[in-house]
């Protein structure tokens, strides 16, 4: 167990690699109850959330979800989040544990200005069931859940308790995230674990899975000093939002979209077996410093070291060779397309 933002998190059960493969080959169950589950309710809730993020939320149908970011006036990222459209204009927002308190305060004051109420689901647990066997395993416990498509969510019942299920995750696999009252969570988890295709995986495996899937970890790959454009997240900025703006940092982001950026987030495949780690320097072949690693480790499914980092745009093309300084030793690395694995989302 490790302490993370005040939560005792299971980092490892049996071993990161076997827990990683559990999600790639069968179904892995993660406890991600540390994530913040927030609701913004009121007739102007869509307006309120769109004043905070560059994502197109008004264009979401009920029960559909979208990945977006809380941006600041410079276009920097305060947090990344998933917004789900509920009934009417109400939305549900899942945020990072470490940012939860700040997000609630910030979004709460904005919600209030729009005459909306923000509430936090403190009593709800959040489980993630990820992997090719997730659909069958979950459908056996909650019939109907298999009808959801990727980035779609709906309300279900389980033994009289309300469960909110979304087809989403942080692993690059097909899978689900299940929000339910904390007091029911243990029994629900045990029922899933009774299926031989399901086993527990910890936050260590979650990290290697998301790195292979090319997904950003807040506070590492993205933060207030990086913009969605630099981070390669422009796909998450709605067309209407690009044209009309109306979110913090819109001018800066639109200017970057038009004129390009000086650095970009890239994937990296170091040669050999030694993993690159966060904070290590990236150099061009001529020795010029061109960036820094923001996440790095070993990719169990890739079968070798993988990393992400920011490099000068002129060096960011896939296939380009750069140098990493691994513990004082220059090591060649190839700029690689993200994700490192082929996602198995059910679209």
């Amino acid at each position: 167990m490790v302490d993370f933002a005040g939560y005792a998190l299971p980092a490892r059960y049996r071993g990161i690699i076997v827990e990683h493969q559990q999600a790639r080959n069968a179904a892995a169950l993660f406890d991600v109850s540390h994530m913040g589950q927030i609701r913004i309710c009121g007739p102007r809730a869509i307006e309120a959330i769109e004043s905070l993020v560059p994502g197109d939320i008004a264009g979401l149908a009920k029960g559909r979800m979208r990945y977006t970011q809380l941006t600041n006036e410079n276009g920097g990222i305060l947090d990344d989040l998933i917004v789900t459209r509920l009934d009417g204009d109400d939305v549900m927002v899942i945020v990072n544990a470490a940012c939860k308190t700040a997000d609630v305060e910030y979004m709460g004051s904005v919600a209030e200005a729009f005459g909306c109420q923000l509430s936090i689901d403190d009593g709800a647990a959040l489980l993630a069931l990820q992997g090719p066997a997730a659909e069958t395993a979950l459908a056996a416990v909650v019939p109907g859940a298999q009808g959801l498509m990727f980035m779609e969510a709906d309300a279900f019942q389980w033994e009289g308790a309300p469960v909110w299920i979304s087809r989403s995750g942080y692993t690059g696999e097909d899978g689900f995230e299940i929000s339910l009252p904390a007091e029911q969570a243990k029994k629900f988890a045990e029922e899933l674990l009774a299926n031989e295709a399901v086993d527990l995986s910890g936050l260590g495996a979650r990290d290697s899975l998301r790195l292979e899937a090319g997904l950003c970890l807040y506070g590492h790959d993205i933060d207030t000093t990086t913009t969605p454009v630099e981070a390669g997240l422009t796909w998450s900025i709605g067309k209407r939002r690009r044209q009309k703006g109306g979110f913090p940092g819109a001018d800066a982001i639109r200017q970057q979209l038009q004129n390009g950026v000086s650095r970009r987030r890239v994937g990296l495949r170091p040669e050999g077996r030694a993993p690159a780690r966060e904070g290590m320097e990236i150099q061009a072949c001529n020795g010029e410093i061109i960036g820094t690693i923001t996440s790095g480790g070993f990719g169990p499914s890739v079968g070798g070291p993988i990393a992400m980092g920011y490099v000068t745009t002129s060096e960011a093309a896939a296939g380009n060779t750069v140098l990493l300084i691994l513990r004082g030793r220059p090591t060649m690395a190839e700029v690689a397309k993200l994700p490192f694995i082929t996602p198995q989302y059910k679209r």
């Binding site: 990161i16 990683h20 260590g204 990290d207 993993p275 070993f298 070291p305």
Partner: peptide
């Protein structure tokens, strides 16, 4: 945890007690 790489010294290298002898890289 899972060890994915070891940096071992070369034959012939001398070490004083307490010197860094090797590096063990786990997944994390």
């Amino acid at each position: 945890g899972d060890i994915v790489f070891l940096e071992l010294p070369e034959v012939g290298t001398s070490f004083a007690k307490g010197d860094e002898l090797a590096v063990v890289e786990s997944v994390k």
